[in-house]
Nucleic acid binder design. Sequence first.
DNA 1: TTGTAGGCGTTATCAT
DNA 2: ATGATAACGCCTACAA
Lengths: 346, 346
Amino acid sequence: MSEQSARPVRRATIEDVARLAKVSKATVSRVFSRAAVVTEETRRTVLEAAVAAGYRPNGLAQALRRRSSRSIVVLVPDLANPFYPAIVHGIERRARALGYTILMGNTDADPEVEAAYLDLVRDGRADGMLLLTGRLPPGVAADDPDRPPIVLISEHLPGPQLPTVRIDNAAAAADMVRHLAALGHRRIGHVTGPPSRVLSRDRLAGYRRALAEAGLAFDPDLVAEGDFTFASGVAAGRLLLSLPDPPSAVFAANDESAVGVLRAARLQGLVVPGQLSIAGFDDIQLAEMSDPPITTVHQPRAELGAEAIGLLIRQLEAAEPAATEILLPTRLVLRDSTARPAEKPG
Amino acid sequence: MSEQSARPVRRATIEDVARLAKVSKATVSRVFSRAAVVTEETRRTVLEAAVAAGYRPNGLAQALRRRSSRSIVVLVPDLANPFYPAIVHGIERRARALGYTILMGNTDADPEVEAAYLDLVRDGRADGMLLLTGRLPPGVAADDPDRPPIVLISEHLPGPQLPTVRIDNAAAAADMVRHLAALGHRRIGHVTGPPSRVLSRDRLAGYRRALAEAGLAFDPDLVAEGDFTFASGVAAGRLLLSLPDPPSAVFAANDESAVGVLRAARLQGLVVPGQLSIAGFDDIQLAEMSDPPITTVHQPRAELGAEAIGLLIRQLEAAEPAATEILLPTRLVLRDSTARPAEKPG
DNA sequence: TTGTAGGCGTTATCAT
DNA sequence: ATGATAACGCCTACAA
């Protein structure tokens, strides 16, 4: 029985199955493209033949013929940034549920890399893009009717509306600052994100809005520029804490820089939250593992991803018109890094 | 000039270019498949025609015809675990340099998900797999001659040798314990990883080996089981620190659980490193951001990824025989969480 | 319900 | 060096 060991090198094709089942290629194809009209009996015959032949439809041939690869490119600036993986995870789960495959790209914010991934959709290997990069790849214009289907996540772009799934950053920031004010803080500092990003500007705007609402004057000295990194948080914290009249609370534009502020406070011998309250934004795991754990704004990151790919796929399949903007709700997570301010001595 | 605005809906194909350049499809193809013999003159003509037509080769058709997609599936158990992104990044950079595309999958250690990604290579959409999951997808046997090309990263499998790129975990663990012993510690605790993983067993073995070398007795009470999580580190730390004769140093099998031990020490009012030295493994960013920063074993993660995909691609292209095991060097990173033990009072 | 046949866009073989 | 042509494996009118 040498046949047993003589495995076919070539993978079985639709033709092999057709021959085995004594039907036409078309029928086999119909059995595998769900929802086609086939007798229950032939369906069974075909399925058996397929199993016997070890047949699996060739995804490339299907995609070529159907003119759709059912793949989506997801562009992330930096996967090592703990903010992103949860979003990607949400994307991936929903994608799989909908029968799509994800091609994930870590761009390092490098336009060349972005362009390389754009090629995948230009050359048919992907049907659309999900962008976490906060900008369009080079050569793509939002209002170009021939541009690839795109949905933005987390960061929206100024100018022509592109479908976007995000949170209301200004409102969420205002919530947090309102909370600090309610605790009794009168001097509330802010460590910003990189000013180039809409995100950072929105959060700063929310900070200012809540200050105004609380009847607190805006003091530019209390705003220190950061760039979302731990190191920038340390630097900004140092700056704020060395002020003649330092803040009793600091709201950082993300958790990583909040932990940086915490470090700066420690370096000056300050007790948190006893002498300084610190709040962050995003609710990444670091906020929880920090000592003390950081009060922060929770973003529903997996849901952001899931909604975004859902939107993109609907757009792709139903030719749904360029939809809008989806805003997902946030919530405050109160932990041990914030408390009422210390009473002024004297 | 209505032609200007009347963009073709259909993307240009090789035939359009051929017509424009007044050559055959074959010649156009040759121009785009590098290293083919074409006159410099016709090459220029074709290239010009291609630009004029806005032509890009269709990746699907190429892959179908060439029987190679130049794509690799990368399976990661949990992208949110900060250990993995750096490896993935190394993979991705090298892949792009070599002209390959990555299909990344987050499996959640779910066999169904692993199987779904395996289908991509079975159906031609990928040429091979890079596994960070520490195991083969269901239905794949290491010694099956028809199994897809696979390279393992970080975790090696017992049994039939599969190509693997990793570090020498036992040796690296031994290095760290040797360091602690050299500082003067006599009672060194260990928080393990999940015992099911070879990784954990290797690190434990290294711990024991270094102990023996230093002439220190192995005390089972000083070994607490963990699972690489922060919470398990806290629990294990509590356990070890509540011993009648507690350790003066703890070596945790990864950084996250080391930070857990740190938390446990703090909860008991211990000063680190004054009263307890703590060491971790992996050198993720958390180790640096922790307060105090954690002494740890550095793994060259990006290099692990780059080596692995290089190995896989060589295997794919040169039909290189099932290669071996590549071990990459580690190094100790000494930070503030370790110091000489406190002198015994009295 | 099932079969026939043509084509998706490319590359490889064989001529010329 | 270039051209004609037949696959690659599948899907989808259209016909039966």
